[in-house]
């Protein structure tokens, strides 16, 4: 089939489908076994330097911040990041110097809060290289192709734009309609971190609210680390099995971390900690501030419980719960500037 055009973006995370099948057969256990471990052990075991990392959720919604902080604490290097709906997660990881390369659907921004000083500085100075562009739909379809065990998926976007020129997609003539069609390659991240409200010790996980692209991403991941608000008995999962978004055999590690998405939002449980995110956005304007931030909130704390105490403890967490449940109004330091 003749390729009409192709992007110059680097093809990351792709494997020949037969190679992937063989890898799955040899490496992904279908055994129902207890996968509970500490976040430190999970990162040590599954995040080698140079890995392609993707994060579940939506950049600052239902993000495994416990995983993100542990990657930083262990000073992982030369990671490539899947910049899928990347917001606070990627800003922190890039700011900490863990990421050299990123494929971008959305990154370097904080949505309503404005742009991200730390990760923008990294990309504008060349410290972090953008290896390819794509769109949000295309990223999750790359994961869809991967979960289906296909080499690519056809799509009808990106066509005619520079987003396609800088992507790893190719354009061919569709043999059915005769029209040009975009083929987006499968993407299998080496390791994915996902935060969920509940799962059992085997990894059977349920998600409340929008699943975003975690259904596809969990199945595309070569290694999947779940952090969870709580580990529930297996019987609770099996009582409503239609709620299970991720069955156990996709999961490699289960880590119980209450409030593990802080300062990001956890639907129905707690709102964004705007005070904390605001502090990061303010401090990350300078390299000294970035260092100070990580010294205080990552290297300077014993564990996630210690960190939660430092950011305001139960009083703060109770307030964030009220805001999330629309029982208290939100406030944010970045709002004051807009007056």
């Amino acid at each position: 089939m003749k390729v009409l055009s192709e992007g110059c973006g680097e093809l990351i995370g792709w494997h020949d489908p037969d190679e992937h099948r063989a890898w799955v057969r040899a490496n992904k256990s279908r055994d129902l076994k207890d996968k509970r471990m500490t976040i430190a052990d999970a990162v040590e075991e599954y995040v080698p330097d140079g890995a392609l990392v993707a994060l579940g959720g939506f950049g600052h919604v239902r993000v495994s911040m416990a995983g993100v902080y542990e990657i930083i604490r262990q000073r992982k290097k030369h990671l490539t990041l899947a910049g899928k709906t990347a917001v606070h997660d990627s800003d922190i990881l890039i700011g900490a110097g863990c990421v050299d390369r990123i494929e971008v659907a959305y990154a370097f921004g904080h949505e309503m809060r404005g742009l991200s000083p730390a990760s923008r500085r990294a990309v504008e100075t060349g410290q972090c290289k953008v290896v390819a562009e794509l769109s949000n739909a295309v990223y999750q379809w790359r994961f869809l192709a991967a979960m289906m065990g296909l080499p690519f998926i056809p799509t009808r976007n990106m066509l005619g734009t520079d987003t396609l020129k800088y992507s790893s997609a190719k354009v061919i003539k569709d043999p059915f309609s005769g029209k040009p069609i975009c083929l987006v390659p499968a993407c299998y991240p080496d390791v994915v971190f996902m935060h969920v409200p509940r799962c059992d010790m085997y990894g059977n996980a349920q998600i409340d609210g929008t699943i975003i692209e975690d259904f596809e991403l969990a199945r595309a991941a070569r290694r999947l680390i779940l952090t969870t608000e709580e580990i529930v008995p297996e019987s609770e999962i099996r009582r409503q099995p239609w709620q299970t978004a991720i069955p156990f055999f996709f999961v490699d590690a289960v880590v119980e971390v209450p409030y593990g998405s802080h300062p990001c939002q956890m639907p129905y449980l707690y709102f964004f900690d705007e005070e904390h995110i605001g502090e990061w956005l303010r401090m990350s304007k300078s390299l000294e501030g970035v260092k100070e931030y990580f010294d205080k909130y990552v290297y300077g704390v014993k564990d996630f419980t210690d960190y939660l105490e430092l950011v305001g403890g139960l009083r703060k967490l109770d307030y964030l719960k009220k805001v999330e449940q629309l029982r208290a109004p939100m406030t944010a330091p970045w709002l004051k500037k807009r007056g």
Binding site: F108, E133, S135, N157
Partner: peptide, 15 residues
């Protein structure tokens, strides 16, 4: 200046 990229914009503008 590096801006955030497409996000869902290319998808919206295409579909």
């Amino acid at each position: 200046v590096r801006l955030p990229g497409s996000g869902g914009a290319n998808d919206v503008g295409s579909f």
